[in-house]
Simulated assay, not measured.
Amino acid sequence: METRIFFNPGDSIANIHDYNEAVRKGQIFKKERKVDDLVIAKDKDNEEYAIFYARDAKQEPHNSTKAYEIKKHV
Results as ranks from 00 to 15, higher is better:
5 I>N: 06
47 E>F: 02
53 Y>Q: 12
49 Y>D: 12
20 N>T: 01
64 S>D: 08
25 K>T: 07
68 Y>F: 15
73 H>F: 07
6 F>P: 08
61 P>T: 06
46 N>Q: 08
57 A>L: 10
4 R>N: 08
41 A>Q: 11
70 I>C: 04
1 M>D: 00
61 P>W: 06
37 D>T: 10
44 K>N: 14
44 K>M: 04
23 V>C: 08
37 D>K: 11
51 I>V: 15
21 E>W: 00
4 R>D: 07
74 V>M: 07
32 E>N: 14
10 G>L: 04
36 D>N: 15
41 A>H: 06
72 K>A: 10
20 N>G: 02
73 H>W: 05
71 K>D: 00
35 V>H: 09
50 A>R: 15
22 A>I: 04
51 I>N: 11
57 A>N: 06
72 K>Y: 01
13 I>Y: 08
20 N>P: 01
24 R>Q: 12
48 E>C: 10
43 D>T: 05
25 K>W: 02
52 F>L: 06
26 G>E: 02
48 E>I: 09
28 I>C: 07
47 E>C: 07
3 T>A: 06
35 V>S: 10
32 E>S: 12
19 Y>V: 01
47 E>V: 04
25 K>P: 01
37 D>L: 07
66 K>E: 04
17 H>D: 08
35 V>Q: 10
31 K>R: 14
49 Y>H: 15
8 N>G: 01
59 Q>H: 10
32 E>Q: 15
6 F>S: 08
47 E>K: 07
50 A>P: 03
51 I>K: 13
34 K>V: 14
54 A>P: 03
70 I>L: 12
41 A>E: 07
34 K>L: 14
48 E>N: 15
70 I>G: 00
6 F>T: 08
54 A>C: 12
22 A>D: 04
56 D>M: 12
39 V>I: 15
53 Y>V: 05
27 Q>H: 04
17 H>I: 02
14 A>W: 09
42 K>F: 00
26 G>H: 04
5 I>T: 12
35 V>G: 08
12 S>Y: 02
71 K>H: 01
64 S>G: 02
74 V>F: 11
37 D>F: 13
26 G>P: 05
62 H>W: 09
48 E>P: 01
14 A>R: 12
29 F>I: 12
13 I>M: 06
26 G>I: 04
